[in-house]
Design a protein around this nucleic acid. Structure first.
Lengths: 228, 228
DNA sequence: CGGGTTCGTTGATTCAGATCAAAGGTCTGC
DNA sequence: GCAGACCTTTGATCTGAATCAACGAACCCG
């Protein structure tokens, strides 16, 4: 791992307050692995062996049931995933696969649990991280139950807007699954948002009228405040 | 509080490993309150002041946005709610109101945080509780994204089945909101399940053919294993 | 460079669920 | 015991989303 990457991980809320020797142990017991795009990192229903930290690239969290499949989230550097399964020592509830060439730091579940026991500050950080992830998921559920497709897209755009536009970092089909709709319907949702000054140019999206878009999206800190 | 109720709370996974003096302090700093049915205990967007423990009765967790409203869960004795907001000291993401006459133990957020700091076993239990609640919500989200209305109802019935039947503990309109559909559609979903041996008699539901119902519901431990 | 595959979009159709409306039932409070 | 309110169910209709199908564009690979 490059030094600046180690620094980034060290600075994460999850590890920031961990004592130096404990953090070193975590890193020593972990593996930094490279993966090609599209590789399945985790199968649903497998026992939870590792906490994963995305160092480079992007990971998609997916779940499927009875022939249907959906995307639950994306993880980019320096995000972590499947902390909860590691803590409860249960099976994973969601699968994971790379969307790009990626490097992942994999920390054995036992190491995480050992360090929690040894380092109260780390335990606190884990708890905090879990609480935030939990709140994020509640928001996701609210979005799914209280909004229609176009509204979910509009809010996703507003949340990812940078300097008047958004660069969609994944294939549109993947974004559609993330937002809980079909690719066809994502296209139509974009068309609907055209009336609010949304212009699509391949992966680039221009928001010409943020006010109009917000009027349709009705963003709320109780649904849209955290990341994904 | 009656002694047997105090015992029930003491035996909860959340408090079981808490040292005696710390547990006593928690109880001393808490208030046991009685509430009539239909009373709003918590407004969304309020700062998180108290961890709530339902001692008697039933509580509905609700959320609303842009004129729409939905139910996120029910809490019965001796369940707790809004632990995450208490930990992160943020606003509540969901409202709460009583469905019946209820008694609630309200523990100040500061007391919870103090005890976590003082008692490692309690901290561990809090973390575990959070991880379970988080996994529950993931399952809920999966159910919402991967199943249709009749399937969600079928799985709810299977999960609550006792001796060949289910006694619906709330108004059907409330159950409908819990399952993410309108009351009208809940009626129709019950009608659909009639073909699988489901018979409705007011609040009582008889499952005459569990096999047929399971065939339609396709229950999975990755979606249906925990409570709510 | 050319051929094939995948992806994104668009149109037509179907389906699930929401909405609107009305009737019957239950519970409540006076 | 009765009147009124609310809940539940059923029917009719409408809307949003999924599906099916087709086409063009982009991309990859030989």
């Amino acid at each position: 791992m490059r030094p600046e990457e180690a620094d980034e991980i060290r600075a994460l809320p999850l590890f920031r307050d961990c004592a130096d020797p404990h953090f070193s142990t975590l890193l020593q017991r972990g593996f930094l692995q490279r993966f090609p795009p599209g590789l399945v990192l985790i199968h649903e229903d497998d026992p939870a062996d590792f906490l994963h930290v995305v160092v480079e690239g992007m990971v998609e969290l997916v779940t499927s049931h009875a022939g249907r499949e959906t995307t639950l989230g994306f993880v980019r550097p320096f995000g972590t995933f499947i902390l909860a399964a590691v803590l409860t020592d249960q099976v994973y509830l969601q699968g994971a696969r790379t969307l790009e060439k990626s490097r992942i730091l994999m920390i054995p579940a036992a190491a995480v649990r050992d360090t929690m026991r040894a380092d109260a500050a780390f335990m606190t950080a884990v708890t905090r991280e879990l609480a935030l992830a939990y709140r994020n998921t509640i928001m996701e559920l609210k979005s799914q139950k209280l909004r229609n497709g176009a509204e979910r897209l509009a809010n996703w755009l507003l949340r990812h807007e940078r300097e008047g536009g958004v660069l969609i970092p994944v294939e549109k089909r993947t974004l559609a699954a993330r937002l809980g709709m079909t690719p066809e319907n994502l296209s139509r949702a974009f068309a609907t948002l055209g009336a609010c000054g949304v212009e699509v140019q391949g992966p680039k999206v221009l928001l010409h009228d943020r006010g109009a878009l917000e009027k349709l999206a009705k963003p709320s800190p109780l649904i849209d405040d955290l990341a994904s």
